[in-house]
């Protein structure tokens, strides 16, 4: 394997001393990818297919049998007011989280990439702190901070002369978005900062000669240069936000009155609270399809070339 690998690589890089047939050389990349693809196929792709199959069946977690119901679950869901509500709430939650998370990450990355700034390491460590915590810990910290009676946020509010608020009652959705953005921005920051560092200095120098302002440089050089990473980052944080609901689970459990009941929460209730695996699988299949659509929309928005740049 080692021998042939090297030879094949050499073939590819232009060497002429190959003793192997072209066919063998062609299969090299697939052999290289095989272990990774096998693991992904079994543990990542199979569950997707399984979820789709299960969505066509009535299957309760606690009962061994299953009955074929066709598309019943789908029609049932789309006539269910709570599911429609969950879709609407999800759109706001995801859009709000992703937009803020990306912008905050971008702003912090721009600050960290500014020229001549000292102590970057220190600041970056401070910015990274939230990302070192798990979802549960993040949620519980915010639960304590947002507490109406004893929370530090209300204490700060009173210091500023405002009345204490019941954040998780009157501002439930914004509150969970803020907690989520606080946690997730670091991820955007890290990806975007590294992209910014890869921009050749000459570009900026040339722009300076042309008399560009800092803002001008940011808009005309930085932003276009980090398009590919931005795309990747947005796709990733969007999918992550759709699929996760840990923060909402702890902070509001979907309430009050369904105002934070995102689709992940809804799925969890169906599958594990009420043991309806078939219904849970249907929701996850719908989420899967939505995720694919969103990915395509992003790629469209950024232009297909952005992807090619990376690929």
């Amino acid at each position: 394997m080692g021998q042939s690998l090297i030879t094949a690589i050499r073939d590819n890089t232009g060497s002429t001393r190959s003793r192997f047939s072209k066919k063998w050389a062609k299969s090299i990349p697939f052999l290289l990818m095989l272990p990774a693809l096998a693991v992904m196929g079994l543990f990542a792709l199979f569950p997707v297919i399984n979820a789709f199959r299960l969505s066509l069946y009535d299957k309760q977690l606690l009962n061994p049998g299953e009955t074929f119901v066709g598309l019943d679950h789908y029609s049932q869901l789309f006539s269910n007011g709570e599911f429609i509500n969950a879709l609407k709430v999800s759109v706001i939650y995801v859009a709000g989280s992703v937009a803020l998370q990306f912008l905050v990450g971008l702003a912090l990355a721009a600050l960290l990439s500014a020229q001549g700034v000292k102590g970057k390491r220190f600041f970056r460590t401070a910015f990274i702190l939230p990302y070192t915590l798990s979802e549960l810990v993040v949620s519980l910290i915010w639960l304590q901070m947002l507490d109406t009676e004893f929370g530090i946020i209300n204490y700060f509010a009173t210091l500023l002369g405002a009345d204490p608020q019941n954040w998780l009652f009157d501002f439930a959705l914004p509150a969970v978005i803020v907690a989520n953005v606080w946690w997730g921005s670091t991820f955007s920051l890290l990806m975007l900062e590294s992209a910014m560092q890869g921009i050749p200095k000459e570009l900026y120098e040339a722009a300076e000669v042309d008399g560009c302002t800092s803002w001008g440089k940011f808009v005309h050089i930085t932003l276009p240069s980090i398009r590919y990473v931005s795309l990747l980052n947005m796709i990733m944080i969007t999918l992550y936000t759709i699929n996760s609901f840990g923060i909402i689970f702890v902070l509001t459990a979907g309430g009050p009155l369904g105002s934070t009941d995102v689709i992940g929460m809804f799925m969890w209730r169906s599958a594990f609270q009420f043991m309806d695996l078939g219904l849970g699988a249907t929701i996850s299949t719908i989420i899967f399809v939505v995720n694919i659509l969103i990915t395509f929309v992003y790629i469209r928005l950024f232009g297909l070339n952005t992807l090619k740049e990376g690929a």
Binding site: L239, I242, N243, W268, G280, S284, I287
Partner: peptide, 22 residues
């Protein structure tokens, strides 16, 4: 390109849903 996208697509399934099949 399709393969690259397919690899990314395995990230699209909500983790919760995979628990029972896994």
């Amino acid at each position: 390109t399709i393969l690259l996208l397919a690899i990314l697509a395995t990230q699209l399934i909500p983790g919760m849903a995979a628990i029972v099949p896994l």
